[in-house]
């Protein structure tokens, strides 16, 4: 599903965020990506979603070579990926419902279909009763769940979550992890990054450890 081969990401100024990274994540696998902040976790996720391009090496997603993808093809790659951000990236000038609908509107779903799917996604994360609210009025945990609903609403085959539990207290974080595991059980491939190692040990998933841009499994 996701395949990295000798990937190097070097920024202008010579800073190497990723050094010769190779790994593979199979279809339907749930993998945790750990490392302290600045280890290159976000960069790695960005390479998969085509937000950034590798300096050298190959990134394959669903058999597509992301590093060689034309600019115009990137949006269609992303429609098969659900992105979850630590800072949620919600839009506060519209309701919870409109936030969740955004990927469907972008893909051109009909109004009725979009409404139905958005409701289902909100129900999945337990926010159906809040659909008319502005996300400003949601708690941090709820905002994260809204971000997750937006990421799964178009049923992507891959979910990439960048520190989804980073700002949450332990109980909330457990909640979110359970949610991800339930998605994984229905076949979604998940790559989830976190800096909280202790928290990861309780979960039975493969862990990729990033340290200063190099990988140890």
């Amino acid at each position: 599903m996701i395949h990295f081969s000798q990937v190097i990401k070097r920024y202008a100024g010579g800073y190497e965020a990723l050094r010769n990274i190779s790994f593979e994540i199979g279809d339907g696998e749930m993998v945790l990506l750990s490392g302290h902040s600045g280890a290159g976790k976000s960069t790695l996720l960005n390479l998969i979603a085509g937000v950034e391009r590798p300096t050298s090496g190959t990134v394959l997603v669903n058999g597509q070579n992301v590093s060689a993808l034309k600019r115009g093809a990137i949006p269609y790659l992303r429609r098969n990926i659900g992105l979850i951000f630590q800072d949620h990236k919600l839009l506060f000038d519209r309701s919870v419902m409109e936030n969740v609908r955004l990927p469907l509107d972008i893909a051109g779903y009909s109004n009725a279909d979009a409404q139905k799917r958005a409701r289902a996604a909100l129900d999945r994360v337990g926010l159906l009763s809040r659909e008319k609210l502005n996300p400003v009025h949601l708690s941090g945990g709820e905002q994260q769940r809204l971000c997750i609903a937006r990421a799964i609403v178009h049923r992507p085959s891959i979910l990439l979550a960048d520190e989804p539990t980073g700002n949450l207290d332990h109980a909330y974080a457990e909640d979110i992890m359970d949610l991800f595991e339930s998605f994984n059980q229905v076949g979604v491939t998940i790559l989830l990054s976190t800096h909280d190692e202790g928290f990861l040990k309780q979960r039975p998933h493969r862990i990729l450890r990033l340290n200063k841009g190099t990988l140890s499994q």
Binding site: V51, G72, P75, K89, L91, I106
Partner: peptide, 16 residues
């Protein structure tokens, strides 16, 4: 800006 950035991240084409 935020809306454009988020839309692009979740698969909006430039023409959208």
């Amino acid at each position: 800006r935020d809306e454009i950035e988020v839309s692009k991240l979740i698969g909006a084409t430039n023409s959208f």
